[in-house]
């Protein structure tokens, strides 16, 4: 039995670029960057939805917008039936407690001037949960749960390695016992050997706390490993989505196919395998016209992007 926890439809987020004071005075029309341009997907309770795509395709913007960390330009995101974008006051606060986020950069995601204890307890302080002693206790519990020791609670972020910092970031995201966590490239800044530790940890935590993940990544192997279903993003749009096996074993969209083809496998049989690489650059949504040209020139572009969506 599945139950939809989050349902995003037609999400749009446009950035207005380079609107300086002089531009405004001179009436220069600022550039519009359609970072997310009509994205729809659903996340079922307890599953991991992998959101995969190349740099600048709007993955992070999608994640942050649907958590209300950026204001959307259009669309809706229904979390447990309620539109996140309509929430305010106490309802927004409740939503914030139910949804957490883990960031990519283990260095910029922790305040260098706070200790691990303060960082992990921060969500509790912000939401006024418990007494100081209770919060300390909870921080100790969490730091052990993510595989560090309570003896490390009073250390500063720069005394930890990248993987350890990422664990602290995960502990922070879990402090308020959320149901839903957006993992924004949580392992892409880590060494391979450490990356596996974090992936296993995320797996275990999901089982233990019944978490639902939106897992954003550019590494297809990682996405395959962790996801139940996958959405492939290209240029601010979702070009294909479906169960993980379908996407990886029988991709319908040529872009997905090209992505899969491009990944070099860690196997000697890979030696010298020439990839029929996608021509051209990864287009930037900044230069919309050029993108469309690139996409239309694309040898496979006649297929309808969502024709095979949600084949499940």
């Amino acid at each position: 039995m599945t139950e939809t926890l989050l349902s995003v439809s037609d999400l749009e987020k446009h950035y207005v670029d380079g609107a300086s004071l002089t531009d405004r005075l001179l009436g220069v029309e600022p550039d519009r960057v359609r970072a997310v341009d009509g994205v729809s997907f659903e996340v079922q309770r307890g599953e991991t939805l992998g959101l995969v795509g190349e740099s600048g395709c709007g993955k992070s913007t999608t994640g942050e917008t649907l958590l209300r960390l950026r204001e959307p330009t259009g669309g809706t995101a229904a979390f447990d039936g309620e539109d996140v974008f309509e929430l305010s006051g106490p309802e927004l606060a409740t939503f914030r407690r139910r949804a957490g986020i883990v960031f990519q950069d283990p260095f910029s995601s922790l305040d260098p001037r706070l200790t691990a204890r303060e960082i992990i307890a921060e969500p509790l302080v912000v939401n006024d949960v418990g007494t100081a002693a209770e919060r300390d206790e909870r921080a100790a519990e969490l730091i052990e749960r993510v595989g560090l020791s309570t003896g490390q609670l009073d250390r500063y972020p720069n005394e930890f390695s990248g993987g350890q910092r990422q664990r602290i970031g995960i502990a922070r995201a879990l402090a308020l016992e959320p149901e839903f966590v957006v993992c924004d490239e949580p392992v892409s800044a880590l060494d391979v050997s450490v990356q596996a530790q974090i992936l296993n940890l995320l797996d275990d935590l999901q089982d233990e706390f019944d978490l639902t993940y939106l897992f954003i990544a550019h590494d297809l192997s990682v996405v395959r490993h962790i996801s139940d279903r996958v959405a492939v993003m290209y240029l601010g749009e979702i070009v294909e989505r479906g169960p993980v096996e379908t996407i990886f074993e029988d991709p319908a969209h040529p872009y997905t196919e090209a992505l899969l083809r491009s990944v070099p496998r860690a196997d000697p049989s890979e030696h010298g395998r020439r990839v029929d690489a996608l021509p051209g650059d990864v287009p930037s949504p900044r230069d919309r016209a050029a993108c469309f040209r690139a996409v239309e020139d694309h040898p496979y572009w006649d297929s309808d992007p969502l024709a095979h969506a949600d084949a499940d």
Binding site: G163, S193, V194, A196, S221, I226, V244, A266
Partner: peptide, 24 residues
């Protein structure tokens, strides 16, 4: 061995990765 065991395989979703414990 550890390095090879800790990367997820694109073509075969092993249920569990075998990371190298500790850090560099």
């Amino acid at each position: 061995e550890g390095l090879l065991g800790s990367i997820p395989d694109l073509d075969d979703p092993a249920p569990r990765l075998q990371p190298i414990e500790g850090s560099v």
